[in-house]
Each structure stands twice: as C-alpha cells, then as structure tokens.
C-alpha cells in the first residue's frame, strides 16, 4: 500500500506492506537508525519517536497508522551540527552510558518538555516511566532533562526581551 507521511520535515511516499511497523520503516526503508528496537513489546521505549509531536513507541505503530502525520526521530532534532537543547543537556550532564536507550530517552524527554516545559523532578521521573535504561543511569538522565528545561526557560526569557 502507498503511504504518504512526513519524516523529520521531509515528505515521504513509499509502497509498504500493511504490517510494516513504523520502527522498521524508519530504520530499514529510510536508514534512520536512531530509534532502536529494544524489547519489541511496548515496554522499554528505545524506539520512541514523536508522532505529530507526541511521544509514541514506534514498535507498536503501523507505518500505515502514521499516514498523513509528522514523524520526528532523533535525527530530526537540532540543526546540522548544532544539538537541540535536550540533546545538548544529555551531553552536558552525561545523561547516557552505553547509549542504547538514549535516542528514545531524548525523544521522550523532548515530548515531555513540549507538554510540560517546567516539570518537577518527580514529573520528569514519571514522564520517563516508559523508557528503561538498563545501565541504570537514571540520575543523570533526569538531571539532563531538568537542565534542558532550565535552559529552555533562559532561552524563552531572552527571546522575550
């Protein structure tokens, strides 16, 4: 079947099998390998991407279900070599160890901050409930999201001046 959607700002049109999962479309058809297949059971969050701005687990979304919608992967954050505020904060706070969960964490955090730009630490922990870090590096991940939120506040304050 023909599916038309937008991925990281680019319109795409592809002939896919109805059963093709979004994560496989992104990785194998488009070569976008940031979203990882971790548990493959909607648990670990390593495959998290944004669908019309909301975080979803792309191992549990059919490509067909994303038709007409906007998909954002970690490759679509930032601008060229410049990192998005969340990516920069993960680097600054060392919010990663082995890195496997990181693209999903960054996308979940990006979605979380879009919904709640000033979360408390508890809200960050609850907001990342669907993303597992098997290195157990949660403290720095939470610190990174809080730092990104604080950086966002500074940016919007400066933009307002």
């Amino acid at each position: 079947m023909q599916v038309n959607l937008t991925v990281n700002g680019k319109p795409r049109s592809d002939d896919v099998e109805p059963r093709l999962l979004l994560v496989h479309y992104l990785r194998e058809h488009l070569g976008l390998r940031a979203a990882n297949v971790g548990c493959d059971t909607t648990s670990c969050g390593a495959c998290t991407v944004l669908l019309d701005g909301k975080s979803v687990k792309s191992c549990t979304v059919l490509t067909a279900q994303a038709a007409g919608q906007e998909v954002t992967t970690a490759e679509g954050l930032g601008d060229g070599d410049s990192l998005s505020p969340v990516q920069a904060a993960f680097r600054q706070e060392h919010g990663l160890q082995c890195g496997f969960c990181t693209p999903g964490m960054v996308m979940a955090a990006t979605g979380l901050l879009a919904e709640n730009p000033h979360p408390t630490e508890t809200q960050v922990r609850e907001g990342l409930e669907g993303n597992f870090c098997r290195c157990t590096g949660y403290h720095n991940i939470v610190r990174a999201v809080l730092a990104a939120a604080a950086a966002g506040s500074v940016e919007s304050a400066e933009a307002g001046q």
Partner: peptide, 9 residues
Amino acid sequence: VGDPQIRHR
C-alpha cells in the same frame, strides 16, 4: 495506564 507513550495511543 501503561506509560506516557502508551497513553498517547
């Protein structure tokens, strides 16, 4: 229910 990603879908 589940987690934020699941609740979005």
